[in-house]
Design a protein around this nucleic acid. Structure first.
Lengths: 154, 154
DNA sequence: ACTGCAAGGTTCAAATTTGAACTACAGGTC
DNA sequence: GACCTGTAGTTCAAATTTGAACCTTGCAGT
């Protein structure tokens, strides 16, 4: 690792901005969701993913891929949501090992109630702060970054 | 909260990209640092901030502002770093309540040893994936976002 | 000097996260 | 059919994070 290519000014600004924005936005949304809906961001994301999936259910592994947590972390959070009655576990017919997480009616209610406030917070923290052109550029850049990293992980 | 302004396609793509990139990059760097240098990203950032500060030291509060963790989290991590001999605590002459965290010689060594690998990982995950123009746009956008949120927090 | 309130850090218990076993089963190969 | 390797989820202990409660100490107003 001799003679590393250090970051130039723009690169450093991009990196610092990324780290700062990342943490600040995460903190902000975490608090907002906890206060207004009693959910962590992870839990909210689980409900969102399930609600968007056909039948309102997904295999644990699929869910873990869409969120970005470890398998054990997902097990924990799904258990929490199950205790709260927002999600139910069902076994998979074709694969005995498999487990489906399914959003319940109550889960739908909670999600519907939480969504408007969450979207408003996302707008306030990120979306409405940028111009449409900036948003388009951000979407493309971060899309590229995500795709690469996902590919590299597999 | 009636009639919320939902996100349009571009906005949603930007938001999804942000969340995904955020988590993927964080995971990646966390692992890299842990494996190569035995540091968490938070700990690495503490060392970076201290190394960049005059005298290699900062008040705990200043440090907490630059990183984005809670005060108690900082206390914990500084204690860990102190146990490892990378950082030392010193009392503040002008304010008895105050505590300075100061990077030690050993801390400098560890930081110097860790930096090249970390920069390489940052390049691989984010910087080198984007064009210079994209980086400039990213820096500006995320800089705006960070500044706004910092201002809102105070 | 005296009071009241805010700021700086730490401590504490509770919640969460992580990776490394571990159990149980699937799928292909011989 | 026996075997071997890989996959799906869970469990476990250890590390981390968080917010609230808690001391001290600074500081402003009187």
């Amino acid at each position: 690792m001799d003679d590393p290519r250090w970051l130039n000014e723009t690169e450093m600004a991009a990196w610092r901005g990324f780290v700062a924005a990342t943490n600040l936005v995460a903190r902000r949304l975490e608090r907002q969701l906890k206060e207004d809906a009693g959910l962590s961001h992870t839990q909210y994301e689980i409900l969102v993913q399930l609600s968007a999936a056909p039948g309102g259910s997904l295999r644990m592994t699929d869910l873990a891929d869409r969120l970005i947590t470890s398998k054990s972390g997902l097990t924990y959070q799904v258990t929490q949501l199950e205790k709260a009655g927002l999600v139910a576990r069902r076994s998979c017919p074709s694969d005995v090992r498999g487990v489906f997480a399914e959003i319940t009616d109550h889960g739908w209610e909670v999600l519907r109630a939480a969504a408007p406030g969450h979207v408003a917070a996302v707008r306030e923290a990120l979306i409405d702060v940028l111009t449409p052109a900036q948003l388009a550029a951000l979407a493309e850049s971060l899309g590229t970054v995500s795709d690469r990293l996902r590919a590299a992980d597999s």
